[in-house]
Computed example of a mutant assay.
Amino acid sequence: MTTAPAPDAAALPPLPFESPATAEDLAAMREQLGRDMRGVVSIARRCGCGRPAVVRTRPRLEDGTPFPTSLYLTLPWLTLDISRIEATGRMAELTERLGEDAELAAGYARAHERYIARRDEVGRAEEVASVSAGGMPTRVKCLHALAGQALAEGPGVNPVADEILAGIPGVLPELVCRCASAEDEADAAGTEGATA
């Protein structure tokens, strides 16, 4: 498989939805993840209600740890929906298709190169310099990481993620807010667990 040349980080257009991360965003991500988010650069995409959906992080965390996942999905309802898709075995199916569909494989390889070039905009960690996320460029390992890239960059950058996100109601063309219903679902699960 021949991959396209790596995009020049200086030539990439700005992330279309990127905005500064505020103290409120850091608190919201702590609530979303149950821990502090480290290495935060910005919010790469927001939910329709304004909460962080994808956070952009540095390739090296404050403690020196290399961190290749620079576009990190934090939105609980979408993380849950994607986990449900992963549980169906979809990743193995997509990996198989990469070996059979040259156009899909080429697009996925370009997404890998773009991921690295985009991460290089905010720093470099040599230990992960050639590693992108989600199994790119040859397999599908984590749909959450791929969705983070697609939501941050917009459609047409990662064909595997675009396909997955197209099947989730409320994601495309705009990321609608389902935060209240996700909180209700989590509360109900907690209540059921408490009574079980």
Rank of each mutant, 00 (worst) to 15 (best):
A9T: 13
L15A: 11
P16K: 07
F17S: 00
E18S: 08
E18W: 10
E18I: 08
E18R: 07
A21C: 07
T22R: 04
A23F: 00
D25W: 03
M29W: 11
M29K: 13
R30M: 01
E31K: 13
Q32T: 01
G34S: 06
G34E: 07
G34Y: 07
M37Q: 15
M37I: 15
G39L: 08
V40M: 01
V40A: 12
R46A: 10
C47Q: 03
C49T: 06
C49K: 05
G50Q: 04
V54H: 08
V55W: 02
T57V: 09
L61T: 05
L61N: 05
D63S: 10
D63A: 07
D63G: 06
F67L: 03
P68Y: 14
P68W: 11
P68F: 12
T69H: 06
L71G: 06
L73Q: 08
P76G: 04
L78I: 06
I82F: 11
S83R: 11
S83M: 06
I85S: 06
M91K: 15
A92F: 14
T95G: 05
E96W: 12
L98W: 06
L98Y: 09
G99D: 14
A102I: 03
E103L: 05
A106P: 01
G107I: 06
Y108I: 00
Y108M: 01
R110K: 13
Y115N: 04
Y115K: 00
A117P: 10
R118D: 07
G123Q: 01
E126H: 13
E126V: 14
V128Y: 00
A129W: 11
S130Q: 10
S132K: 00
A133I: 08
M136R: 02
M136L: 02
P137W: 12
P137I: 10
R139I: 03
A145S: 07
G148N: 14
G148F: 12
Q149K: 03
L151Q: 09
L151D: 08
L151F: 11
E153S: 13
G156Q: 11
N158A: 05
L165D: 06
A166W: 12
A166E: 12
I168V: 13
I168W: 14
G170C: 09
V171H: 11
V171K: 06
E174C: 10
L175P: 00
L175G: 04
C177F: 12
C179H: 09
C179D: 03
A180T: 15
A180N: 11
E183I: 11
E183P: 02
E183Y: 12
D184W: 05
A188Q: 04
A189K: 07
G193Q: 13
